[in-house]
Design a protein around this nucleic acid. Sequence first.
DNA 1: GCAATAGTTAAGTAGTTGCTTCAGTGTTTA
DNA 2: TAAACACTGAAGCAACTACTTAACTATTGC
Lengths: 111, 111
Amino acid sequence: MLHDPAQLDLMFQALADPARRQMVDRLSRGPASVSQLAEPLAMSLSAVVQHLNLLEASGLVRTQKLGRVRTCQIEPTALRAAEHWINERRLAWERRLDRLGEFLAETRDET
Amino acid sequence: MLHDPAQLDLMFQALADPARRQMVDRLSRGPASVSQLAEPLAMSLSAVVQHLNLLEASGLVRTQKLGRVRTCQIEPTALRAAEHWINERRLAWERRLDRLGEFLAETRDET
DNA sequence: GCAATAGTTAAGTAGTTGCTTCAGTGTTTA
DNA sequence: TAAACACTGAAGCAACTACTTAACTATTGC
């Protein structure tokens, strides 16, 4: 579910927009309503709702409506999936560098 | 340099495209030329070069040209910056949850 | 019940993105 | 030196994105 490439695609696409990252940043400090999310952003409420829908579709944010207010919160498992993708690639590269270093050290010893 | 919001913007935008993530994935297994990067992708070499330029502008990939071949490799520090941004937000949220849990446990004890 | 609040939905639009093709530039190799 | 190779850059184009405004629904407080 979390390593579904399509979901990963949606997540990275969601994180690519600065307004959406600002929303995630706000939510990392605690839940917020749509209007609270919109408040620091220089755009219409409607635009914020559209961003929010994208964030929700990507799995990064979960929302629930009580009465007329929709409360939003972060879904940490989704964030972890994006983090994990990057981490795996970086580690693969760094392990490769390590092996190369060992190889060079060994061949130097053989002189 | 690494926490420059503009650079972060470029990095997340670069990672948002599946073709570019595939290129990063390929490079995590070792350096490659432009043609080698292009080989598994169903698009023209020209398109690959355009993706590559974006990856380089974002700082995720570094390239150097020797003769007529351009060799590409991952820049792990840049990957780490993106990773770090996500990690900080996730941790902030999880710490908040922990504090909430403690609070609830404490207030339960007070009955 | 009426007005204010909180959000939703649809339609339209300017700007961006991800390609394409084509016509190059250097660099090797036979 | 000619041909093949490895890219590079520009122009063009269809699809997508990030907004806008405006009209709407549902809830809450007076």
